[in-house]
Design a protein around this nucleic acid. Structure first.
Length: 303
DNA sequence: CCTCAGGTAAGAG
DNA sequence: CTCTTACCTGAG
């Protein structure tokens, strides 16, 4: 059933850390990190495993529909346009960004299906990454196609529209339940709405997405960046807010001013810059300094 | 028991 | 257009 490992993307710049951030760092919730530098995930209706071994990325099919190497390359943005996009970022004059790029070599934006990404980020508000992952899995398992090995496909919005608000609340969505029901109903009345989004220029697509209940500026940007191939989209979440405030000295700036800054400073691939800064900010202080921890214990013993 | 977490929507100034 | 606040729920 499982196909043999095949090398992929030999000619492109990759690293284990960059890959891990890409797959399980928060832009997708379809991947799981396994021991031995292996990740397993679902690409549309195919279960795929990736492995990092001796500086080489390999993949194999592990369930569901067959999938081509070409599809994997596209999904992982393994082509020359990525290399060019990174080079076009203003790292030459921006040492913060340069630092972030060097910290996560080969970090990229996945090209995920837009409808699937919309569900994920519609449910993401005020939730942690593990919570979002768990909630999405629950929905996929309930309504999505069984791909074997506890993997399930995204059900599609027509299936999601079968959920009532109380169904959705029973799944643990809380106040996000009305977003899901509202958006599912909206899409049912407007066939082709999501398909159209991809073809529109960024500004228009962003405006259109915000017509959906529960989709504000941040979620719309996430959907366009991760599911709409709009690399100029610059989602401003709490992490990016911190990065801009602390590393770029933008305390007191409004979110609107920050969006404007990002457009001008980072340019047509601002979203890619965002991903590097996001990963950098989120991983600050994640390395456990053992010695520092010891001294903390001493201090905390006083009463 | 209390606070807070990948935000959005609604209302006020 | 900026600023506040409520909104569900579960984890720390």
């Amino acid at each position: 059933m499982t196909s043999p490992w095949r090398p992929i993307g030999q000619k492109y710049h990759l690293s284990h850390g960059g890959l891990d951030e890409t797959l399980v760092g928060g832009q997708s919730f379809a991947w799981t990190s396994l021991p031995d530098n292996i990740w397993t995930g679902v690409i549309t209706r195919s279960v795929v495993e990736l492995r990092w071994k001796e500086g080489q990325l390999c993949w194999r099919h592990a369930g569901g529909e067959a999938i081509t190497e070409e599809s994997i390359l596209d999904y992982l943005w393994l082509d020359d346009t990525y290399t060019r996009a990174v080079d076009e970022l203003p790292w030459r004059t921006d040492s913060v960004l340069k630092n972030a790029i060097q910290g996560f070599p080969g970090l990229r934006i996945l090209r995920q299906p837009l409808d699937e990404v919309l569900l994920v980020f519609l449910l993401s508000s005020a939730k942690s990454i593990p919570q979002i992952r768990q909630l999405c899995r629950k929905i996929h398992k309930l309504l999505g196609e069984d791909l074997g090995g506890e993997n399930y496909a995204f059900p599609g919005w027509p299936s999601l529209s079968a959920l009532s608000e109380s169904d959705a609340r029973a799944l643990g969505m809380g106040y996000r339940a009305k977003y899901l029901v509202g958006t599912a109903g909206f899409l049912q009345e407007r066939p082709g709405f999501l398909e159209n989004i991809r073809e529109k220029p960024y500004e228009e697509a962003h405006k259109l997405l915000m017509e959906l209940p529960g989709v504000g500026p941040k979620v719309a940007d996430c959907v366009l960046l991760f599911g709409g191939e709009k690399t100029e989209a610059f989602p401003i979440d709490t992490w990016i807010l911190q990065s801009l405030q602390k590393q770029y000295g933008m305390r007191g700036w409004t979110v609107g001013q920050m969006r404007e800054f990002a457009r001008i400073h980072f340019g047509s691939h601002a979203g890619l810059a965002q991903q590097f800064l996001f990963s950098q900010q989120r991983n600050l202080g994640k390395r456990e300094p053992v010695i520092a921890k010891k001294s903390n214990n001493v201090l905390s013993n006083r009463e």
